[in-house]
Amino acid sequence: MSIVPAIRVRGVVKRFADLEVLSGIDLDVPRGHVTCLLGPSGSGKSTLLRCVAFLEETSDGFIEIDGEPLGYGLGPDAKRMRLAASSIRAVRSKIGMVFQQFNLWPHMTALGNVAEALVTVRRLSRRQANEQAMAQLEKVGLSQRASHYPGELSGGQQQRVAIARALALEPRIMLFDEPTSSLDPELTGEVLNVMRSLAETGMTMLVVTHEIGFAASVATKIVFLDHGRLLVEGAPGDVFSKPRHPRIDQFLDTYLDRGAAGLI
């Protein structure tokens, strides 16, 4: 593990009106590894991920991406200060994000979705952008579907296009927000396979998931959140093997009931 973590989270608090969703999170996400965020619904794991993507503004604390502050830094008076929009854009460009609901743009083909930011943000010519987008679609096994609209693709295919769209901008870090939660079990596999092969290339990944099997077999670090606090973190072997934290025992029971016993 290198000295500067890919993502460093320090004392992050997030409040929505009266509700405190994150109550002071400290977390290091190591470079080149897969880190999985687990926890029950409402534990704040998706909110934490969205804060790292700067889709939510933190109420307190700091987040650093590759050692650079995201959104908030220390001002000259050593107080927490919002950074310039240009700095936010620059730091955010290191991050790719994949959503639970895929969020493909329905008026563009699969190729158009992947090529869009290459043209509008990277200023490539349409031809160059399409070539690069096609290469990304090939990586997720969908070059045959390039000219299809999202409405003509299965959920699993849509999510793979969404992964290709994020990868096209060559991010250093990929965030996944419950990428398989709106897929039926048959389609979950094809998305997890793409994520597995991405992990093998050494991509830094932070994954919010309910796929305990995936977490146990692919992640090098498991982080368990409960009620907005970081409860346990460690290697999957340490977190999942007995004796376990009683809260994790309770959480895992629901999965063991559903026949996932063999995976853990």
Partner: peptide
Amino acid sequence: IPRGHIEAATTVGLNRWQTLTRIILPE
């Protein structure tokens, strides 16, 4: 328009104007 479609535009770096003309208007 689902909020997520706009968030997806934000995460790939589209600015407000680009998001309006390329994503929101056509949708």
